[in-house]
Design a protein around this nucleic acid. Structure first.
Lengths: 164, 164
DNA sequence: GAACACAATGCAAATGGTTTGCAATCCGAA
DNA sequence: TTCGGATTGCAAACCATTTGCATTGTGTTC
């Protein structure tokens, strides 16, 4: 399989949702269908790989819009669950097109040197580190697992302090 | 159990390492034992809870040192595996005293509203979300799991681009 | 115990990702 | 076609974190 850039082929099934369907999703949600919005979704559809705001901005090419617009849209799309945000701990947010429901649920194996990303189809814990390391030719494999949710004290509140 | 501030009692065993032992660890590693260093470790020992650089800086009180020094020391201590860094995805690093080996290995359940943190003794994947939610009175529980390591292409290199 | 080498600190400025205020523009409902 | 609110571009602001540099402190050597 030919990939768009310097990353290994995906191990999970690609999300095939056509652009039309994506814009439909926008329409149904009372969001406006703007050129930047469509262009950003198209970029994410082309590169199904975690991309930073900057990378997306660059990939827009002649469809270019302001970087701030990219940021704003990704936030919006994240809120709508149309994209998923990933955090590799280097202070830069990365986004991917999200599948419907569980379809897109997956995790990543990230090289701490070059940021190369391998997508994992599994969803599993610590004992798998060794196996994952061997299967993908990585060494010194560690992982990070956090759970998020709304605690009983906060139920009903509407402001969010985390995940700004 | 009385806790230092506004968070629930810990579910895991606290790390009891006395300060002397911690400074010994510094000595053995050819690091200098400085007042800021000791003060920071002492703060982490007192609050065994993920703390941000700023929070640690504040908690130093009369032992105050420059905020930049806090940042530098936490990085150093992280490199020595004396503290563990956690990333809750809000763009702020948090640190905890690390136990030796697996002793301190654990994950967190974070309230996305108030940032309240519950420590989990388990190390487990998705199917646990429901159970965790129930046990700790959280709702809308999701999780984030990423693996990190060094890929075969990077073996031998020494610069690190991720985890800056 | 004094001298030295280098690690560590304080301070201030820089960095870099991300957000925001505001006026201009655009989308889509009526 | 009109109109109001959503969206955009631009520039400035923000904020966590890092860095340059002169100064200070620790631990080692003699």
């Amino acid at each position: 399989m030919k990939t768009c850039c310097d990353h290994p082929p995906h191990s999970r099934r690609l999300i095939q949702t056509p652009l039309v369907e994506l814009t439909d999703q926008l329409r149904r949600s009372a969001r406006k269908i703007t050129a930047p919005r469509q262009a950003i979704l198209e970029v994410l559809r082309r590169h199904q790989h975690p991309l930073t705001n900057k990378e997306i901005h660059l990939a827009l090419g002649k469809e270019e819009c302001d970087l701030a617009t990219v940021y704003r849209n990704l936030r919006t799309l994240e809120g709508m669950r149309m994209v998923a945000r990933f955090d590799f701990g280097d202070g830069v947010a990365r986004y991917e097109l999200a599948g419907a429901g569980d379809e897109g649920h997956h995790h990543h194996l990230v090289c701490t040197h070059c940021t190369r990303v391998v997508e994992l189809t599994e969803c599993l814990p610590r004992q798998m580190e060794q196996e994952i390391a061997e299967r993908h030719g990585f060494s010194q494999v560690t992982h990070r697992l956090e759970f998020f949710g709304v605690c009983n004290r906060c139920r009903g509140s509407h402001t969010t302090s985390l995940v700004k």
